[in-house]
Simulated assay, not measured.
Amino acid sequence: MCGRFLLLLLLLPPLPRAAGTVCGCCAGPLHNGSAVGRYCASRADAEPRGRCCVAGSPHAGRVVGLDLSNCSLRSLPPGLPEAAAAVVVDLTENPLAALPNASFRGFTRLRSLAVPLSLECPGGSGAWEQVTTLGSSRLCQRQRNPCNSSEELAWLCPENARCAPDGPGLSQCLCAGPFHGYKCLREGAFPGLLFCGVLGAVTAALSLLLWSTQRRQAEAP
């Protein structure tokens, strides 16, 4: 069933993409002398792409480094979650007003984050093993595992779930197999075929609706 819906989706015209990504939200290339540039040069499987360091294949690579320094940012770009696999991120020399608590949710691999000196490290200094200052920047290094530092977090998870890191100072509850569903109360294999079928049907319907709407607008005088 999943295969049929995937085939249908491949035959449909692609959905329009938002203009630009996090790698192109700031003009200029990746700075070779920056922490992100040095990290990118140290990896044989990575290459610069815009303001990003991307590892993997050209079409399916993941962002492992992000240099948005000196980009006149007053707030974090909407595409920041695209860099959730980043190991090194530089946000220095920007007039950022604040970093919301959940700004780096999902950034579980982040080991080095540089922010303007006026800002605190996401999650607070206790979320990092080392916090240092250098000139006008603050360097947050090596995330702590919040599940190891507080027994209280473990009690917040349902009986059949475990606590897992979800970014600086953030945690999440993951169901332990074979449990799944709401509060991990359902036991057994996840209904993958049913889920794929429903998801594929909804996606196909939305794609067709969007395609027909754009076609009518293009044909209108």
Score class of each variant (00 low, 15 high):
Trp128Val: 02
Asn70Ala: 15
Cys53Met: 09
Gly20Glu: 02
Ala114Ser: 15
Gly33Phe: 08
Asn101Phe: 01
Ala97Thr: 15
Leu96Cys: 11
His31Asp: 14
Arg111His: 09
Leu73Phe: 12
Gly33Thr: 08
Val54Gln: 02
Ser42Pro: 05
Gly61Trp: 02
Gly28Thr: 10
Arg74Trp: 11
Leu110Val: 07
Pro122Thr: 07
Trp128Met: 05
Pro78Lys: 07
Gly28Tyr: 10
Gly20Cys: 06
Cys121Ser: 08
Leu66Pro: 00
Gly61Pro: 04
Arg38Tyr: 06
Ala44Met: 08
Arg51Thr: 07
Pro116Asp: 07
Ala44Arg: 14
Leu10Met: 11
Ala19Phe: 03
Leu96Asn: 08
Gly123Glu: 03
Ser118Gln: 12
Leu66Asp: 00
Asn32Asp: 14
Pro81Asp: 13
Gly33Pro: 03
Leu7His: 10
Ala60Gly: 09
Ala97Ile: 12
Cys53Phe: 08
Leu68Val: 11
Val89Ser: 01
Pro14Tyr: 01
Leu6Asp: 11
Arg43Asn: 04
Asp45Cys: 08
Pro116Gly: 05
Gly50Pro: 02
Ala55Met: 09
Gly65Ala: 10
Cys71Asp: 03
Leu99Arg: 02
Ser75Asn: 11
Val89Ala: 11
Asn32Ala: 15
Val89Asp: 00
Gly65Cys: 05
Gly123Leu: 02
Ala46Val: 04
Pro78Cys: 00
Gly33Glu: 14
Gly124Thr: 06
Ser125Arg: 15
Gly56Asn: 08
Leu12His: 13
Ala97Gln: 15
Glu93Ser: 13
Leu10Phe: 10
Gly123Met: 03
Gly37Trp: 02
Glu82Thr: 03
Ala35Gly: 09
Tyr39Ser: 00
Pro29Val: 04
Ser42Gly: 12
Leu110Trp: 06
Arg109Lys: 15
Val87Gly: 00
Leu68Glu: 02
Phe5Cys: 10
Leu73Ala: 08
Leu30His: 04
Cys121Ile: 05
Ala60Glu: 13
Gly123Asn: 05
Ala44Pro: 06
Cys23Met: 08
Gly124Ile: 04
Ala60Gln: 14
Ala114Val: 08
Leu117Asp: 09
Pro14Gly: 12
Ser72Met: 14
Ser69Lys: 04
Ser103Ala: 15
Ala114Lys: 07
Ser72Val: 03
Glu93Cys: 04
Gly33Cys: 09
Asn32Phe: 02
Gln130Val: 14
Glu129Gln: 15
Val64Asn: 00
Ala60Arg: 15
Arg43Ser: 05
Val115Leu: 11
Phe5Ala: 08
Leu15Thr: 12
Asn94Phe: 05
Thr21Asp: 12
Gly20Trp: 06
Pro95Cys: 04
Pro116Ala: 05
Val36Ala: 09
Ala55Pro: 00
Thr108Glu: 15
Ala46Phe: 04
Ser118Asn: 07
Gly20Ala: 05
Gly37Asn: 10
Leu91Ile: 06
Cys40Trp: 01
Arg105Gly: 11
Leu9Val: 06
Arg109Gly: 08
Gly28Ala: 12
Leu96Trp: 07
Thr108Cys: 11
Pro95Gly: 03
Gly126Arg: 14
Ala60Cys: 05
Val115Asn: 03
Cys53His: 03
Leu99Asn: 03
Pro116His: 06
Leu7Gly: 09
Phe5Leu: 12
Asn101Trp: 00
Thr92Ile: 02
Thr108Asp: 15
Val115Phe: 06
Asp90Val: 11
Glu120Asn: 13
Ser69Ile: 06
Pro78Glu: 10
Ala85Gln: 13
His31Lys: 11
